[in-house]
Simulated scan of single mutants.
Amino acid sequence: MKETKLESLDHLHQILEKFRKSSFYKFRGQSDKDWSLTPKAGRQGFNQVSDQDIFYHWKRRAISYLNNTNYNEWELLSIAQHTGLPTRLLDWTHTPLVAFFFAASENPEKDGAVFIYLTNYFVKHKEKEPFDLSTKISMYQPTTSSTRLANQYGYFTVHKDPEEPMTEKNSKGTLEKIIIPAGLKSDLIHLLNQYGVNYLSLFPDLEGLSKHLSWFSENYKFWSTNFNEEEIES
């Protein structure tokens, strides 16, 4: 896998230039560069119970929280993923700046990474169910069944075996990796906020609002003027 180290904020724009005229690339940010591309259902601590069984129990109880009762299996699994359930889905985004945000927003003491995935192998979700796939890893383009999914321009890879990390060998595509040095994370988050990519835009709910204001207050000394509503929303 090709690796590139982000040298500066200016270097970010140089890196992204090659992807500017293509809509085929998908991006994923991870706040620790050493983490593998493994869905939550396959990670230590979540892999002791079948993710299919967990999803069954989630569906049985989630119906009372959903406004729409006509979601199909793929849509329900996407909602479960975006509300924290361990699933065999792995989040990707159509927008690179979203991936860079997730790579820099946590674990400030560790180098992060943005993975760039190029494939033309998409699951035929109208013909196949999520737990009935023959291919090890497929890309899935979801419907916008939640505002988080819409605002994050979300895509997923679907993993037949959640415990098997995604690599170039098993993913029917190419992977690149951009290393985000820990020392650049804070400046990168401030840059992305200026571009309108922050907790408030990516999590358009009370959780996102609270996280955004928490981040703002933690970085109070950075701002050149006093705390006010106009600056928060800029």
Rank of each mutant, 00 (worst) to 15 (best):
W223E: 10
F122G: 00
K124V: 01
Y140F: 15
K185S: 08
P142Q: 06
H190P: 03
G183C: 09
H57C: 04
K177W: 02
S146T: 15
Y71K: 06
F156L: 10
T174S: 14
K110S: 12
Q141C: 11
Q48C: 08
F115W: 15
K160W: 00
G42K: 11
H13T: 09
T4D: 08
I179S: 02
F101P: 11
R148Y: 02
K211D: 05
N226M: 09
S23T: 12
L89I: 04
N193S: 14
T144I: 01
T225K: 14
E231C: 01
Q52H: 10
L9W: 10
E75Q: 14
P86G: 03
Q141R: 13
K169M: 11
V114N: 08
Q152Y: 03
L90V: 09
N193K: 14
P204E: 09
V197L: 01
L77D: 09
A41I: 03
N120Y: 08
P86F: 01
L118T: 06
G196L: 11
T93Q: 01
N70H: 13
S36A: 11
L175T: 01
E109C: 07
L66K: 03
S145L: 07
P108C: 08
N219V: 01
I63Y: 05
L76F: 05
W223F: 15
H57A: 06
S134Q: 11
D51I: 02
S201M: 05
M166T: 06
G45N: 08
D51R: 05
Q194K: 14
S23M: 02
E7T: 15
H212C: 03
S186V: 04
S50A: 10
A103T: 05
A150V: 00
K177S: 01
L200Q: 13
E127K: 15
E230G: 00
Y195E: 10
I178N: 07
G154D: 05
S138W: 13
K126M: 09
I189E: 11
K110E: 13
L133E: 08
N193R: 15
H94I: 09
T135M: 09
E176P: 00
K169Q: 13
D10W: 02
R148N: 01
V49A: 11
N151L: 03
L12W: 03
A113Y: 02
I63K: 15
I116M: 10
F46P: 04
S31K: 07
D91N: 08
T83V: 00
